[in-house]
Amino acid sequence: MSDGDQMTPSRPVRLATRTVAISVFLLLIAGALVTSTGSGLAVPDWPLSYGKLMPPMVGGILYEHGHRMIAATVATMVGLQILVLGFRRTDRTTFRLGLAAFGAILAQAVLGGLTVLFLLPPAISSAHAGLAQIVFALTATIALRTSLFWSRFTDAAPRAAVEHGLRTRASRLALWAAGATYVQILLGAIVRHTGAGLAIPDWPLSFGKVVPTGAEWATDGVLAHFLHRTFAWAVAALVVAAALALRKLDAIPGLRRLSTLWLGLVALQVALGATSVWTGKAVWATSAHLAVGGLLWIAGVLAAVLLARAATLSPAPAAAEVGEPQEAAA
């Protein structure tokens, strides 16, 4: 195991890590369906379900126990991924990411159990939602680092004629956009788990106004809901700025496509947020809103990881090379 430029991982490794990342995404959707259908407490016990491994899959049990079954399968896959990464001698960082993903998904299972046993306290349920996105980011990064694209990127990035200042700016914007998206996901989790999804019943206005007034603020959930919908515009602006900055680095392979995907996702996510309100929290709309939020976050994480990789491979030019004053000359 090394931490430098590794050999291109074999096809089974690439397939395994990609499958794990996609499975984690499907698990996120399954979790979204549990909350969106109000099935979070359809199974009152944990880790068993009505004292069994397999209760009757009726009503809300289908969603809650289905989520548990998918989670158990995905957790096993994330565990096996460590073995694959270890035996196939991937680089040390990727292996460590694999360990972190397994630790995070086990912690995630415990949070899932806690939130059921304590009847869905918003703090624990929101932490469960937030940690899910960390697991997704870890597995997506592992899939990226073991992909053929990563190898090609490693070869091509140092040769790409890219101005250092542009790359640094794009890197900073990608980090800010990813961070803001994660904060927005946590705000969304609070809205979801405090039942504040329709606390403000209209969109884009709030109670027919730009900003709620007077007694409207005293209504349960209005503050969290308003923060979520207002911060969404800040996130959208950061994502657009970061995506446009990525487009200026089109000499580096893959960044232009990622930029287009990122812009598409942010537009779709705003539309789904609005649709969630307009449809009175239709199950499909709120679940899709959570899923696309996850993809938006992953796009930011992958952009940041790729730009960090490009910076490692092509370090900043020495001051003399760019013609800066030589303070210590002579």
């Binding site: 158990a72 096993t76 415990v110 806690l114 046993l117 304590f118």
Partner: peptide
Amino acid sequence: KTFPASRPLWGALVPLAFLIAACSPN
């Protein structure tokens, strides 16, 4: 009768789950 909970996947989680369940409000 109680149901067996000693499936390998749950093996690590069950003792913790029982500890957690002791604090459950039910």
